[in-house]
Simulated scan of single mutants.
Amino acid sequence: MQTDIDPRSLIGRKAFDRNGAKIGTVDEVYLDDATGEPEWAAVRTGLFSRDAFVPLEPSELAVEGLRVPYDRKLIKDAPDFGVGRHLSPEQELQLYHHYRLDISAPVSDSRSPSPSPSPGEDLGRVAGSPD
């Protein structure tokens, strides 16, 4: 994802799965405590539903909203940690495993690379919402 995007601009945007199906609306954005980079988004999956955490890398921000390169079912089956507080290192590791993300792979694209969090790093809460 583009690192020059203000994470607060993601809140309230629609999120879509890899097939273009709407999965919900971005409710909160979680920042890596060490780097300050947006790392995860909590997507409200329905009016009376829960928030599903989705990785912002390798997701893309498009005109229509956030495009998450995973199937809707995988996203909805993500571990439920609730929102409004830090993700613990254990919770983050569970998300990495759920999405089969390589936590040791460096970022390699045309943008300036930002360090990937280690499984022991605590992820900060929420860009743009009051504590």
Rank of each mutant, 00 (worst) to 15 (best):
I23T: 04
G24M: 09
T25A: 03
T25D: 07
V26E: 02
V26D: 03
D27V: 03
D27N: 14
E28N: 10
Y30W: 10
T35H: 00
T35S: 15
E39K: 04
E39L: 14
A41C: 11
T45D: 01
T45N: 08
S49A: 15
R50S: 13
F53K: 09
F53Y: 15
F53N: 09
P55L: 09
P55V: 05
L56D: 09
L56I: 08
L56G: 05
E57N: 11
E57C: 07
P58K: 07
P58A: 06
E60Y: 07
L61K: 12
A62Y: 10
A62N: 12
V63G: 08
V63I: 12
L66W: 01
R67M: 13
V68I: 15
V68H: 01
P69G: 12
Y70A: 06
D71I: 04
K73D: 14
L74Q: 12
L74V: 11
I75A: 03
K76Y: 14
K76I: 11
D77R: 14
A78K: 05
A78H: 04
D80A: 14
V83L: 02
V83H: 13
H86K: 13
P89H: 03
E90I: 06
Q91W: 00
E92I: 00
E92Y: 13
Y96E: 07
Y96P: 00
H97S: 08
H97M: 09
H98C: 05
H98W: 02
H98P: 02
H98F: 09
R100M: 09
L101D: 01
D102Q: 10
I103Y: 12
I103A: 09
S104P: 00
A105L: 13
A105Y: 01
P106L: 11
V107R: 15
V107C: 07
V107E: 14
S108Y: 12
D109P: 09
D109L: 08
S110H: 14
P113C: 01
S114Q: 10
S116W: 00
P119R: 09
P119N: 06
